[in-house]
Amino acid sequence: MWEKIKAVMDRKGMTMYAVSKKAEIDQNVLINLKVGRTKRIYFDNMQKIADALDVSLDEFR
C-alpha cells in the first residue's frame, strides 16, 4: 500500500507531513505504513489520504 501512496505523493510533489496535515491524520499513520509496522489502514484514513492527494480511492487498488 505504501508504494502506491508514495507514487501519488511523488507525482503530486507532496511530503508525508503535507499529506498528513491536509488529510487531518497523524503523520504516524503514514510512517507506520512506510516502515512496515502496519500493512493495513482504516478505510476512513485511506479516504482522507485520497482526498488530500486529490485522487480516487481506485488509485490505491
Rank of each mutant, 00 (worst) to 15 (best):
N45V: 07
A50M: 10
Y42N: 15
G13T: 02
K48I: 00
T38C: 05
Y42H: 15
G36N: 01
D26Q: 12
K39Y: 03
V55W: 03
Q27V: 14
R40H: 10
A18S: 13
N45T: 12
M1T: 04
N45K: 15
K12F: 02
K34H: 12
N32Y: 11
K21L: 13
I5T: 00
D54T: 07
M1N: 01
N45E: 14
M9G: 04
I41C: 12
R37L: 11
V55P: 05
I5L: 00
K22W: 06
A52H: 09
K39M: 04
L57C: 06
V29S: 09
K21I: 08
K22C: 06
N32Q: 13
K34V: 06
Q27T: 13
D51E: 13
M1C: 01
Y17K: 11
A7P: 01
L53R: 08
W2L: 03
V55M: 02
N28C: 09
R11D: 08
R37N: 14
M46R: 09
I25W: 01
M46A: 15
K39W: 01
T15N: 03
R37H: 10
N45G: 08
K22V: 07
T38L: 03
D51H: 08
R11I: 04
S20E: 08
K22M: 08
S20Y: 07
R40Y: 10
D26I: 07
N28R: 13
N45I: 04
M9Q: 09
N45F: 03
N32F: 14
L33Q: 10
S20M: 05
M46I: 09
M1H: 03
V29H: 04
K48A: 15
A50I: 07
I5V: 05
Y42T: 14
D54Y: 06
R40T: 15
K4W: 00
M14K: 14
I31N: 11
V8G: 03
K6E: 14
M9F: 02
V8Q: 08
N45P: 08
W2Y: 02
V8E: 09
Q47W: 02
K12Q: 03
